[in-house]
């Protein structure tokens, strides 16, 4: 059970140790203290381990994560879990801009709020935000699911492809080609499964959420839109 104190160990050494781990490692529980908002903590991990980070982190924490479970006991800066492939990242505080950006898989849970561009260009990641999200979230979202217990800022889902968006609170505005869609049984089941994964099963009523997605009008070039270019 390695305990790394970032006021004594360099970030580069920490990440190098994490990168050396293989799938069959016995060092499966790591604790990082004094993160002090440093950038790129535990980025690029590719092993089925658990990493507890005792305090706030800077940019790109857990970026490109594969298999690992990362828990941040504080807030996270820009791009937490960006391009993550699998595994779980849980932020106990708030997340800054671009949380889960371009994520391919895995689950990102933000217990507080996430700010602008949450899930921008998401490509398969699941994101559950227990607070609210900022403007331009899920911009060009291709696949994956974004669940928001609170409100969403301006231009939600702008130019969205096939990501599924579920928002419980008010949406300040929808972006281009993003529309509200009917909540059918299959969507209620999908949402219930995500709430379960986030540890909120039976605590929140799935019928309180509204679903948003692509109107599919921007997929292909349309000669009628030529004046817009």
């Amino acid at each position: 059970m390695p305990l790394i104190d970032l006021s004594k160990t360099s970030l580069r050494d920490l990440n190098a140790s994490l990168h050396k781990l293989t799938a069959d490692t016995n060092e499966t529980l790591w604790t990082i203290v004094n993160p002090a908002g440093e950038h790129s903590i535990a980025a690029g991990v590719d092993a089925p381990i658990t990493i507890n980070i005792d305090g706030p982190v800077g940019y790109y924490c857990g970026g490109m994560n594969k298999h690992a479970t990362i828990v941040v006991e504080g807030s996270a800066g820009q791009g937490v879990g960006e391009n993550m492939m699998s595994g779980l990242i849980r932020v106990r505080g708030d997340a800054s801009q671009s949380a889960g950006a371009t994520g391919r898989g895995g689950l990102l849970i933000v217990e507080g709020n996430a700010s602008a561009r949450c899930g921008i260009s998401m490509k398969g990641i699941d994101i559950v935000v227990k607070g609210s999200i900022g403007h331009l979230s899920a911009f060009m979202g291709q696949s994956g699911r974004l669940v928001v217990f609170g409100e969403a800022g301006e231009a939600l889902g702008d130019s969205i492809y096939e990501a599924h968006l579920y928002v419980r609170g008010a949406v300040a505005g929808l972006g281009a080609d993003c529309v509200e869609k009917e909540m059918r049984d299959e969507h209620r089941a999908e949402l219930a499964e995500l709430l379960k994964a986030a540890g909120e099963e039976h605590k929140i009523d799935v019928s309180e959420f509204r679903r948003y997605g692509s109107a599919r009008q921007l997929y292909n070039f349309n000669i009628d839109n030529v004046d817009a270019y």
């Binding site: 908002g37 706030p56 800077g58 800054s96 602008a116």
Partner: peptide, 18 residues
């Protein structure tokens, strides 16, 4: 960046927002 605020007294209980 948030890390600049960490030296401030009582930051743990501050209202923090973007």
């Amino acid at each position: 960046e948030f890390k600049s605020l960490m030296c401030l007294p009582g930051i743990k209980n501050a209202k923090v927002w973007e």
